[in-house]
């Protein structure tokens, strides 16, 4: 008997924990629905009802996306609901279907899987919902009922980063690359950007194979520590800021090694300020979401877009200008 009670109690504690966990994803939603409630009176007077479905909400980049989207929604009087697909394509499909049946006028989404969501987008568009890709695109998105794509460009981001590294090195030196999980689409595109630049610099030598550090600071830190005891490196080029911070920790502040990242997250900025990393390329996810919402409003109003691919530009951030972006 006692055991049973305990088991139930445990289950209770657990589920409370889980609920609390869920709360993290819904907290931004509830925040926005407060806005929505405020705005919903305005919605009757021609406001917009829009959903944003994010890939996940577990890192600074994605949280930045949520926050910027909420700000933009407030500005434009949009009734915005933010959902997280938690990296699950199936979940994202159901979320799109749910939003269609709940009468959203537009759905912005970052596809969990570029190939798996085309049909769901097409089905939603057939119901008259404005579908917009943000941050990354579905394969062949224009033929799947998707009206617009608001994104940065990972290849360009990679090019921007590597170009700065090449300039700082004076076109000559030994470098190493840290990548995200092998097979990650964004990571591969950034790598492509690196290669596009490296073609032009025969004197820049990659002394080790790119290491897969899973976007993780601690993993990057361990790998770079090991490298530094065996190789003389002039630069370490990282596919995100988290790994750049790890590399920076391993090398120490003002090490003379050029260490760069992508994303422009707060931990990256902190490391730039204290000299552990050299610079980062900002992928302004917030701007992508905001641009997407703006485009959605225009399309709902029946206007047309000048260009249905909206590219958010990359910015190089280093010690000089970091204060402007915090």
């Amino acid at each position: 008997m006692k055991k049973k009670v305990m088991a139930i109690l445990m289950a209770g504690i657990l589920s409370a924990g889980l609920l609390a966990g869920c709360g993290s994803s819904s907290s931004s939603t509830s925040g926005s629905s407060d806005n929505a409630a405020a705005a919903s009176t305005g919605a009757a007077a021609g406001g917009y009802k829009i959903a944003l479905i994010q890939q996940h909400q577990t890192n600074a980049f994605q949280i930045g996306v949520s926050e910027a989207a909420e700000a933009k929604a407030k500005e434009l009087g949009v009734d915005l609901t933010i959902l997280s697909a938690d990296q699950d394509a199936q979940k994202q499909i159901s979320q799109i279907e749910q939003c269609v049946s709940e009468g959203y006028q537009a759905i912005l989404f970052e596809p969990v899987d570029p190939d798996g969501l085309g049909d769901a987008a097409q089905a939603a568009a057939d119901q008259g919902v404005v579908m917009i890709n943000v941050i990354s695109a579905c394969t062949d998105w224009e033929n799947h009922g998707i009206s617009a794509l608001s994104c940065g460009d990972n290849v360009t981001a990679g090019e921007t980063e590597m170009q700065h590294v090449a300039d700082l090195l004076g076109g000559k030196g030994k470098i190493a690359i840290l990548t995200g999980p092998s097979g990650d689409a964004g990571g591969l595109q950034r790598l492509e950007g690196y290669e596009n630049i490296l073609k032009n610099y025969p004197d820049i030598e990659q002394v080790v194979e790119p290491a897969d550090c899973q976007w993780d600071t601690a993993a990057a830190q361990g790998t770079v520590e090991s490298w530094l005891s065996a190789y003389d490196l002039d630069a370490i080029v990282c596919e995100n800021d988290g790994m750049a911070v790890g590399a920076g920790n391993a090398a120490g502040a003002d090490s003379g090694i050029i260490i760069t990242g992508v994303d422009g997250t707060p931990d990256g900025f902190e490391a730039i300020k204290d000299g552990r990393i050299t610079g980062t390329v900002s992928q302004d996810g917030g701007a992508m979401a905001a641009n997407g919402i703006e485009a959605a409003c225009k399309l709902i109003d029946g206007e047309t877009l000048e260009n249905n691919t909206i590219i958010t530009t990359n910015i190089w951030i280093d010690k000089e200008n970091v204060a402007d972006y915090e």
Binding site: G17, L18, A20, G21, C22, G23, S24, S27, Q57, T58, N59, A60, Q62, I63, P266
Partner: peptide, 10 residues
Amino acid sequence: GLALLVSNGK
């Protein structure tokens, strides 16, 4: 989940 909640995912 608790870790994400407490840090707001950042």
